[in-house]
Design a protein around this nucleic acid. Sequence first.
DNA 1: GATGAATGAGTGTTCATTCAT
DNA 2: TATGAATGAACACTCATTCAT
Lengths: 218, 218, 218, 218
Amino acid sequence: MPKETLFKIAAEKREHLLREAALLFAERGFNQTDVAELAGRAGVAKGSIYNYFENKEDLYLYVCRDGMERSRRAVYGDMDPEWDVYRQVEHIFRQGARFVLAYPEYLILYDNISSAGMDRFSEQMSLEVEKFTADYLKRLIRRDMELGRVRNDVDVNWSAFFINSLYIIFMTSLVSGHFKIRMREYLEFEGEIDKESIEKQLRSMAVMIDRLLRPVKG
Amino acid sequence: MPKETLFKIAAEKREHLLREAALLFAERGFNQTDVAELAGRAGVAKGSIYNYFENKEDLYLYVCRDGMERSRRAVYGDMDPEWDVYRQVEHIFRQGARFVLAYPEYLILYDNISSAGMDRFSEQMSLEVEKFTADYLKRLIRRDMELGRVRNDVDVNWSAFFINSLYIIFMTSLVSGHFKIRMREYLEFEGEIDKESIEKQLRSMAVMIDRLLRPVKG
Amino acid sequence: MPKETLFKIAAEKREHLLREAALLFAERGFNQTDVAELAGRAGVAKGSIYNYFENKEDLYLYVCRDGMERSRRAVYGDMDPEWDVYRQVEHIFRQGARFVLAYPEYLILYDNISSAGMDRFSEQMSLEVEKFTADYLKRLIRRDMELGRVRNDVDVNWSAFFINSLYIIFMTSLVSGHFKIRMREYLEFEGEIDKESIEKQLRSMAVMIDRLLRPVKG
Amino acid sequence: MPKETLFKIAAEKREHLLREAALLFAERGFNQTDVAELAGRAGVAKGSIYNYFENKEDLYLYVCRDGMERSRRAVYGDMDPEWDVYRQVEHIFRQGARFVLAYPEYLILYDNISSAGMDRFSEQMSLEVEKFTADYLKRLIRRDMELGRVRNDVDVNWSAFFINSLYIIFMTSLVSGHFKIRMREYLEFEGEIDKESIEKQLRSMAVMIDRLLRPVKG
DNA sequence: GATGAATGAGTGTTCATTCAT
DNA sequence: TATGAATGAACACTCATTCAT
């Protein structure tokens, strides 16, 4: 937990620190990030970091949580709760892609919670990070199932899990070095992925979700 | 590249070293693994590690590649190439799950190639790791498309990508601290996942793959 | 180049560090000097050394340059530029001997620039170290040649070279283990050289320089 | 002291080892020379080095002594003992320069006995290395003094010391990185020293020695 | 006698954290 | 509250020497 001091400093200073921390942690990983270098980039004294946070781990957790919060705002911020699950999920994917391309560091931080030797972070963050989306998707599917927009023989939990899995793999493929190479190898293109390909993928995933949930006509 | 010395020592000694290295790297991650501790666990002198490998990075790469090789043998080892894509993919998932539960360290090492600050490893390994599966799946789908077992309006590349994505997410959910918590949260169970749940998931995924590829009767 | 921090600490602390470094480097040589031991002797933490200098090499270079500076001040500090070349050179030798007996470590550091495997130091320091004396001696000889105090058929450059060579050999004979043994063997005395012998040698060298430069009467 | 084994191996093998050792020790210095690398260059197994010598230090001492022996043979080998001191000294300088340009490694090894941290070598070698030349020069000067070729008011010991000092400084200026830079700075030439400059220097030194020893006519 | 794998003490450098100013 | 000098544990890698084959 950050110290009170963090909230007594100028908002821009805090923002700058959190941004630089996110960028550096995402670039290097937790262990390879040097607090001194971070302080330098953020334009604060090394000692000040320890006035704001208990230690490096506390800072890391706060930066991650802050990032998850930013991501959630970007993805769910202007969502219309009236939309059906298909439209809402499409919105989630589209906004997610937009956010992830603008701020890849936050998805990298998310991915990193699951990397080797990060179990102590996972124990503190995983549940709180996943709960929101899990609950949201499940409630949405259940609501639309009652409204007849979703076939009533699907497993709500598994469907939510499946949708979120697609989300994670797709978004990660946009930011992680390894997963970019992997996607290029599977989809046989070169260089950075373009808007059009992203669009095509979004449609493919929408099709899969449709096949999973959409009641069969007739 | 390992030094020649590695291949001159007793096979059991080499095997023991590689196993301990895989376990420790998977537990701690590359950077947090102490070469001295690794040597201790493997029952060799620290200096001997440097008789076998150029440096820690060289060792890590070799352990990863060795792990990918083991994984491949376990998953594709007793595959019958005559089987149709559905049966082969089911075999892959089932053998994969079995391997991953027995030797979770190798999947953790795979996952780790994509974590923050591991770009230099990714550049060296990602392509060679992904190529085999990508080629295999694409060839399989294409063959069965020609045989009329797969609908001919699907995108072969994307389908392979989709199947492998399911594989990764599912396997990772069996081993990663974070993804285990996530899966529990979505699927609402507690403790370690049991055989039955795994079975259920395998079936759910088979259904998705069926919906993706199977020609519609009529 | 030392870091700024070096110049922010207490002057006595810096002086103590530089002195101990000079003593230890002179005792052991660059490669055999352990940074940890040096830090211990200087009464600072090992890590602090790296707050002051980029690395061990940076420290070594600074200590050497600092030593050359001290030597120069001791030798040329209270020189009267009006004196003729004979008196100035005598002054240089006499002050040099005094300095070298009080602070042998700096001459040892100078000698060490030319030892095996020190080429990278030599490339950085040799010219800057030699230039001052070379210029000084040449200017002095040339001036006195114009004043008729030096015969006008001598080679100015070679004379300066010769005088400095005598200086180096003589001073080194006062401090280096090998050259002390050598001098004892040639001059047939035992134990440490005494004031009187030094005096005698200074006179012998003055005679050689006289024979080299002094215009022949007639 | 080398082990007997050294003298049981083929002469060319021994010669090759000693040559490579001289080259490598001269290039790197004693401490920075890796026994494994040396063995590799010499084409023998690392363990064999320890069949020939007690340890690295024993090897070093032997290589140095061997080098001094080679140097002595080259310089004094075809000397005519009837020549007067002027001719013999000129021969020494000329042959020395020739040897030093062909095999700079041996002079570098000699110079290195006097570098920092080499005292334990100096204690073992300095006297035996210097004694020969010191005795030779003194005997020669004394003989010629009796023959009236050398003025009888000079100090024999100091004269020998002076002549050998010139020798050391001049030869070292031909091989040491630092002393080459120093000589270039004093004598104002660029690049490697040429035959003609060497010749000129030899003459200058001969002049100094003449002025020191030659009886004044009239 | 030749070999080279095994050993482990040693060393330069890093970096999270503390604390006096 | 801000600063940055001080600290020392940690860690990758080296290398002289030994010894079983």
